[in-house]
């Protein structure tokens, strides 16, 4: 399943004194199986953009194509689009409402009109996928859980609909470093296990750069650059200007190079950096 965003502009509250252009002239293609990071400063329009991908917002101008079909054309059921394009909102735990976790996760599949047994099966699968034990938590109230666990339940609520594309809006917001790493790790596993197409929205390069295959950088309502993380990081100054920066380890390598060390700056993880620096030291030792 692929998504094409074509010349999409969105204006909030048009024709009022509060009119504001949240995104303008966005062009973006997400192909089947890709792992995208959508990065930008707060207010750059990330959430607005992704709410277009499942038809929650309608473009003021431009179009959204899913498998080459405009989702706002006649005869397209937005409900089925929303099932295929699963969207996990920021702070998704704020939308929990049922008395038990089982029933909350079942909300999505039930709305799809699935049979009881199928719903039950999916709930179990979805909870397993996010690393919660179905037997242990099913009868608990979602409000008894810790913040990180509540967030997992909410993510399971979307996974239970078996989407083909999973979009997560700042899934690590407000979590401690450990909770953050756990959630990110689970997203990676999930992507591999379920062969999902994933879009990870974040304002932190540090979090996403090492996970995703491709990055789209948003700035003031526009996508200003897209490509692989390595390509994007070549423009270090540009990113800093946009309030984004790059992973600390990449920055370290760039600083070392600036001081005249002959090393590659094409580095995303600590392991890569260690290898590169060791190589450099060896080379010098021999000389």
């Amino acid at each position: 399943m692929s998504i094409d965003v074509k010349n999409v502009t969105h204006v909030y509250m048009p024709n009022t004194p509060f009119e504001s252009i949240a995104i303008k002239d966005i062009n973006w293609t997400v192909k089947d199986g890709e792992f995208w990071g959508l990065i930008g400063h707060t207010g750059s329009g990330k959430s607005t953009l992704i709410q277009h991908l499942n038809g929650l917002l309608k473009p003021t101008s431009g179009e959204i194509l899913i498998n080459d079909i405009n989702i706002h054309s006649k005869g397209v059921s937005l409900k089925s689009i929303r099932q295929k394009v699963g969207l996990v909102f920021q702070y998704p735990e704020h939308q929990l409402f049922e008395e038990t976790i089982e029933r909350d996760v079942a909300f999505g599949p039930k709305n799809m009109g699935l049979a009881e047994e199928e719903v039950a099966k999916r709930v179990k699968e979805a909870l397993d996928l996010v690393g919660l034990s179905y037997e242990e938590v099913k009868d608990k109230s979602p409000f008894e859980l810790s913040g990180g666990q509540m967030r997992r339940v909410a993510i399971a609520g979307v996974l239970a609909m078996k989407p083909e594309i999973l979009i997560l809006d700042e899934p690590t917001a407000g979590l401690d470093p450990r909770g953050r790493d756990e959630i990110l790790e689970e997203i990676v596993t999930l992507k591999q296990k379920q062969k999902l197409t994933v879009i990870l929205v974040s304002h932190s390069m540090e979090d996403v750069a090492k996970l995703v295959d491709k990055l789209a950088v948003m700035y003031r309502g526009q996508i200003v650059s897209q490509g692989t993380p390595r390509e994007i990081f070549q423009d270090y100054e540009g990113l800093v200007e946009k309030g984004l920066g790059i992973p600390q380890i990449t920055e370290l390598m760039i600083k070392l190079k600036e001081r005249g060390k002959n090393i590659s700056t094409d580095i995303l993880t600590v392991d890569e950096a260690r290898a590169e620096i060791t190589k450099h030291i060896r080379r010098k030792g021999l000389a």
Partner: peptide, 13 residues
């Protein structure tokens, strides 16, 4: 607005 959209993303009507 936000909660409504979040539930609509889960098929609420």
């Amino acid at each position: 607005d936000k909660i409504m959209k979040a539930q609509m993303a889960r098929g609420a009507d």
